[in-house]
Design a protein around this nucleic acid. Structure first.
Length: 401
DNA sequence: AGGTATTCACATGAAACTATTCTCTGAGTTAGG
DNA sequence: TAACTCAGAGAATAGTTTCATGTGAATACCTGT
């Protein structure tokens, strides 16, 4: 009986008119043919990069902009164009794009150099070599022939916060040591004030040129969404007002185009799952809720055990009293450690964990001074109550409490 | 009353330590000539 | 003698611990009126 109904289900699924034509167009790794509302910026950057085609070293460039403002997309676009032209004209130009956020790929000095060497065909072990040895290997293989290298470091702020700014210093210095090769560096940062606490020497040499990507406004977001929706959805699927609402939601969150596209895609998926052949406005709200919930549950799930236990203690405390502090959390946390058979960490560490949980947005934290009674963090949960219960369940399961 | 000093309970920083993963090297072992 | 095995040294890295210093305001303690 079961398989009968199921095969019917699948048949139905295939028979009905799909909402999507090409869902890829809404996914975050999709590279569109046109990048709306970024012409000026792209031209500006292209102008800065252009000397590379004459084998002159372009100025180092720094690009700022909030997430989802088209930085990466634009620079990749320019990069492809440059490479194409250089190939046509036989210009020895190489461009490396590195996303420094990627864990275990490009988030330390060693790894960046090792990765670059690998791109050049030099096999470098993941560990075991001294860093300067890796530098030597890199320089050796790089200097084999005369050429121009452009190094694009995406999310460079992550790199610096993780590994310090000596890397950048070394890279700029490396450039002056290279004989055969000219290298210029393009740094991309989500953080607008990132460069402020950089060593001034590094800052001045690195940001010879600066470009800022402003957030999209709601109208621009609408254009982007329409463009992509045309590719992704079947004609006449989207009800009036859907695009507008989607754009409005995302514009509220500092004009993040990626978010807007996600919202539209998830809304589409929800509509499809409900067997609807129209994408109506209320799916946007549902999508918003679902995205947020998925994000939260996913972060909870991927936290290390100690973090999970800390979070669990916070949830329990939150149920018992309406205001509590680091010390309370630590006491309860120790209890749970004992119950679960985990070795408790020091208060110092737990204090950092609390800060980390705040960073990922699971909790909200405020440093307050209670005068005579010390200075501590006041902790509140940063997720809606319905989700909290779900989190609690997950944690109890994962930690088998 | 008004002003200053204390004091609490952590926050925040820096350095040192630990465990793990990995390479490289050279000594010892083995198999084949 | 060449090929192989294996232990030990040395590196990078993530996650902690240890030690040290910082901090904001409620309270305790003065002081002169």
């Amino acid at each position: 009986m079961v398989d009968l109904s199921l095969s019917g289900f699948f048949e139905n699924f295939l028979k009905k008119n799909p909402i999507f034509v090409d869902k890829k167009a809404l996914q975050s790794n999709y590279t569109p043919g046109v990048i709306p509302h970024r012409d000026d910026l792209i031209k500006q950057i292209a102008g800065i990069m252009a000397p590379s085609l004459r084998l002159e070293r372009p100025s180092n460039l720094f690009i700022y902009g909030k997430p989802g403002t088209g930085k990466t997309l634009s620079i990749k676009h320019i990069m492809n164009q440059l490479l194409e032209t250089s190939k046509d004209k036989n210009i020895p130009l190489e461009i490396f794009y590195l996303n420094c956020k990627l864990k275990r790929v490009a988030d330390t000095e060693y790894r960046i150099i090792a990765h670059l060497s690998r791109c050049l065909g030099q096999n470098v072990p993941a560990t075991g070599l001294p860093t300067d040895e890796v530098y030597r290997l890199f320089v050796n293989i790089l200097e084999k022939e005369k050429k121009l290298v452009i190094l694009i470091l995406d999310e460079i702020d992550q790199l610096v916060s993780r590994a310090g700014d000596e890397i950048l210093y070394n890279l700029t210095r490396l450039n002056s040591e290279l004989k055969n090769v000219d290298m210029s560096i393009v740094g991309i940062s989500n953080n607008l004030i990132f460069a402020d606490h950089l060593d001034p020497r590094i800052k001045s040499s690195l940001s010879e040129e600066e470009v800022v990507f402003p957030p999209y406004n709601a109208l621009q977001l609408q254009d982007i969404l329409r463009e992509r929706a045309k590719l992704a959805f079947r004609d006449n699927v989207i009800e009036d007002g859907v695009i507008e609402k989607c754009a409005a939601y995302a514009a509220r969150e500092h004009g993040d185009a990626r978010r807007a596209l996600d919202l539209l895609r998830v809304a589409g998926e929800l509509a499809e799952r409900k067997n609807k052949d129209k994408l109506t406005i209320d799916f946007i709200d549902m999508a918003e809720e679902k995205i947020e919930k998925d994000r939260v549950l996913d972060t909870v799930y991927t936290q290390p055990k100690q973090h999970q236990l800390t979070l669990y203690s916070i949830i329990i405390l939150n149920n018992q009293q309406n205001s509590f502090f680091t010390g309370d959390v630590y006491e309860l946390y120790k209890n749970f450690c004992f119950k679960v058979g985990l070795k408790p960490l020091t208060q110092r560490r737990v204090s950092d964990i609390v800060a980390e949980l705040d960073m990922v947005g699971l909790i909200n934290v405020r440093v307050i001074s209670k005068g005579r009674y010390g200075r501590t963090r006041e902790i509140t949960l940063g997720v809606p109550t319905t989700t909290v219960n779900k989190i609690k369940k997950i944690l109890e399961e994962v930690l088998n409490l």
